[in-house]
Amino acid sequence: MYRIRFHGRGGQGMKTASRILGSAFFREGYEVQDAPRYGAERRGAPIFAYVRAAQRPIHERGGIAQPDLVVVADETLTPIPAAGVLAGVSARTVLLINSAESEDAWKARLNYAGRIVRLPGGGETRERAETATIGAICAGAAARLVGRISREALALAVDDEIAALGREAAEKSRERALAAFDALDFAEGCVMEGEAHDARGYAAPEWVELAAEAALAAAPDIRAVATSVEVRTGLWRTLRPVIDYDHCKGCSWVCSTLCPDSAIQVDAEGAPRIDYDHCKGCLVCVAVCPPHAIRALPEKDVQQAQEATA
């Protein structure tokens, strides 16, 4: 059975990616499961979707613990523990990553034992409006890596899943999915089917005897304030607002009031300070700044520049 996991952000089309790949496998005669996994998080937050495909009926359910292929549509997810990009990977797991950086750089950074393949056309989709086609690219690339899906089946699968979005969107997605498929001929079939779970020599679960605990602890109540700041929603951001303090007029009530996320506070000198741990990158501040003193920069570039200086 093939077990494939797609990691991206809400809005990047990971559900679509899983459905295109699922449909393509299905067209090739495979039994298939595909599903997105939703949480509380919205557009921009890490999400995943998965595909199982086998020549027999599939009895497994739920998330994939030991993937054969992990597709990462957004490289900035890799350091986020909650995104779980590397959960359950082993030396036989292929990692397909959307990045401008080399495979070797990623192998070193992640200390990754398995094979890494870069997503063709990665890095070209920085514009927010373009993100929807990343899913199609991921699906096309993944289809080539498993090596069981024909170009024709892929094209039809894209049509199956994208048709509802209109002809233009479908054509663009098909074109990109096929381009990714074509570009990865060198890696065709590098993903191997995983084994079934072994019922011999398994590690027994550590079941515990649960005790009744005081209601104060055992009710779904929070007896602290503003614990949400523990959640680093700054990780959702693909574009970063940067204040040019030379042009900032100090009318900080505008950006600070209108930032929906309370992520711009005003310091003692009256200057607005963006809290990048929590700024989701909506860029409302960029749009509303009266002297246009806030610019949007690609998050990845800023991070690379910071790494370079560090």
């Binding site: 509380a40 009710a219 779904p220 109540d221 929070i222």
Partner: peptide, 11 residues
């Protein structure tokens, strides 16, 4: 003694 009661859980 602020508290948030009956909050959602995920998972």
């Amino acid at each position: 003694q602020p508290s948030s009661q009956a909050v959602a859980v995920l998972g």
